[in-house]
Design a protein around this nucleic acid. Structure first.
Length: 561
RNA sequence: UGGGACGUCGCCAAGUUGGUUAAGGCACGGGGUUUUGAUCCCCGCAUUCGCAGGUUCGAAUCCUGCCGUCCCAGCCA
């Protein structure tokens, strides 16, 4: 990289702000954190946050912590912690420290005591109903709890009893004493500790009281010397509370919260609540179903870390809500794989074709480039035989003028081979297409002088004798609506696209593809990018179509109808 | 009807201490190369910055008013 080029992507308001702060000497280094709650798998929206949080210190100097925001044992599980670690690493990021909000439970408890001692927190034993009623509404101020002004000594005693375990869930809560008439509802004496007799994945049964998000997050930031605490827009209203707590507590540093707009993508859902439902109710096969917008799902589908990171860098970081077309993500995959994926031939929906002037029982091994633009990627040999399969879509008995593939009496080139002419269309008694009889023009073999002869179309093929049977899974958008979660009248699962998965059982692959391992990727020429699925075995390969190639013909065909 | 935020081309998005013709990407349209209708390469694509006024020699950038959208009344995060 040339030295005067900026280290990373496009400018955004957070980057600009940090650059100015650095110029003004406010910081020596930038420390961020990625703070997932381990109550589900990470999705593409988290990827946006991950890329932002990790790239800022990379650019300006500093580091990023991975922090599990584990303050609610009712929803959090170890398996999610493991999955999150794996996904962040897979995206290509290394955190400086792995932290947990639960590491700070003792300190947080002392902070709570500090608030109590300063008359800034009190124990309230009213039930949730009463607390809610007293909170007021958006337009009316709240009213004080009858316990709001009890003594420091009594509050300490009560809070200690909360911790001791003698009180049942919901018996009382600790509240910050701020302002019941604040226009910002978060400031109306928010609950900062609640009783939850529930084992925690990390602290076991050491605690039966747990701090709320608001009481844990900012303080954790301060304890970790986080300089910039980046979060999504819905926390804007929490910032005054975040700041209030930092100002009133003896924390070791002064972090700042900055909010940016969360990512939305059309034809899918990006909230953990909804994704969890898709998994729990069996609408998908799991968190890593290739149709899921989760990191694990995208990975299984065939997305690369680069494609996801490039996508995140290109969509930008702003404060305005936006929805990105799913096709944008796909485009980045195509860009990445176009440059790197070895080319292969595979027939998804086979149609038998007999080369009548090709010697019976013989195999001719033809050279094929692994990548047309990158000779470095080498060549391979593909077997040609008298009987081959071509794609059903590549033959039309009654073809429109613009159809450049095979038709009765027409010519087409077989990729990496020669030009053929369709002489005869064989049908069964019911009139169904059975096979095609074609003759080859041997002079037009690749490498021969006659190879220069041009025909309009080139189609792919696989030797019937050598081809490998495979299952191929094709994926479409998970939902039928651009914004399935935006309809308040209807449950979002009603908008699921029942045709989002298509399984092809009769696909035929070029030999060698049975050796492909999970993690490899290929372009099946003229079709798209495909990856082996973990469900496959060498004797019974399974491939996922990650994304199709751009298909101008399909677009044209649609217009012709 | 309270508070917080946002509104620049079909989708994203630079630009905001006011100063030449409003970046870039995607999409779209046109053309070229091509044994992938892929890739690649050219060209085109906002007299206009939610609307209406105002300040100014000059405004997307400042002021006023209005309109629209999103978030907030969990002992979730």
């Amino acid at each position: 990289m040339s030295s005067n080029e900026p280290a990373s992507g496009p400018t955004n308001f957070i980057r600009n702000r940090i650059r100015k702060e650095l110029e003004a000497g406010h910081y020596e280094r930038i420390v961020t954190r990625f703070p997932p709650e381990p109550n589900g798998y990470l999705h593409i929206g988290h990827a946006k946050s991950i890329v932002l949080n990790f790239s800022l210190p990379e650019e300006f100097g500093g580091y990023t912590n991975l922090r599990f925001d584990d303050t609610n044992p009712e929803k959090e599980e170890q398996r999610y912690i493991d999955a999150i670690r794996e996904d962040v690493q897979w995206l290509g990021f290394d955190w400086k420290n792995e932290c947990h909000a639960s590491d700070y439970f003792e300190t947080l408890y002392e902070y709570a005591l500090h608030l109590i001692d300063n008359g800034l927190a009190y124990v309230d034993e009213q039930d949730g109903e009463s607390i809610r009623a007293q909170r007021g509404t958006l337009t009316e101020p709240g009213t004080s709890s009858p316990h709001r002004d009890r003594s420091v000594a009594e509050n300490r005693l009560m809070f200690e009893r909360m911790r001791s375990g003698e009180l049942p869930d919901g018996a009382c809560v600790l509240r910050a004493k701020i302002d019941m008439s604040a226009p910002n509802i978060n400031l109306r004496d928010p609950v900062i500790y609640r009783i939850r007799h529930k084992a925690h994945p990390r602290t076991g049964s050491n605690w039966c009281i747990y701090p709320s998000y608001d009481f844990a997050h900012g303080q954790s930031d301060a304890i970790e010397y986080i300089t910039h605490s980046l979060c999504t827009l819905e926390f804007e209203d929490h910032r005054p509370l975040y700041d209030w707590l930092i100002e009133h507590l003896p924390v070791p540093s002064r972090p700042h919260q900055i909010e940016f707009a969360r990512l939305n993508i059309d034809f899918t859902v990006l909230s953990k609540r909804r994704l969890t439902r898709l998994v729990d109710e069996g609408h998908v096969s799991g968190w890593d179903d290739p149709r899921m917008p989760t990191i694990a799902g995208l990975r299984r589908r065939g997305f690369t870390p680069d494609s996801i990171r490039n996508f995140c860098n290109e969509i930008g970081v702003t404060k305005s809500e936006s929805t990105i077309p799913f096709g944008e993500l796909e485009r980045h995959l195509r860009d990445d794989l176009n440059a790197r994926a070895p080319r292969r031939m595979a027939v998804l929906k086979p149609l038998k074709l007999v080369l009548t002037n090709f010697p019976e029982g013989e195999t001719e091994w033809l050279e094929a480039a692994n990548h047309p633009q990158q000779p470095d990627m080498g060549i391979r040999k593909v077997p040609m035989t008298r009987e081959i399969y071509i794609e059903q879509d590549d033959f039309m008995e009654e073809a429109p003028k613009k159809f450049f593939r095979l038709k009765p009496g027409g010519e087409v080139r077989l990729r990496n081979a020669f030009i053929i002419r369709c002489d005869e269309v064989i049908k069964d008694q019911a009139g169904n297409l059975v096979e095609l009889h074609c003759s080859m023009d041997p002079e037009t073999r690749s490498g021969q002088p006659g190879a220069e002869r041009k025909v309009k179309g080139t189609i792919h093929w696989v030797s019937a004798e050598h081809g490998i049977k495979s299952e191929v899974r094709l994926y479409d958008r998970l939902f039928k609506l651009p914004n399935p979660g935006g309809d308040k009248e209807t449950d979002f699962v009603e908008h699921l696209n029942e045709e989002s998965l298509e399984v092809l059982n009769a696909a035929i692959l070029e030999p060698g593809l049975d050796q492909a391992r999970v993690g490899e990727f290929f372009q099946f020429e003229r079709l798209g990018y495909f990856v082996p699925d973990p469900d496959g075995r060498e004797e019974a390969p399974v491939f996922n179509r990650a994304v199709t190639l751009r298909d101008t013909w399909a677009k044209l065909e649609k217009q012709l109808r």
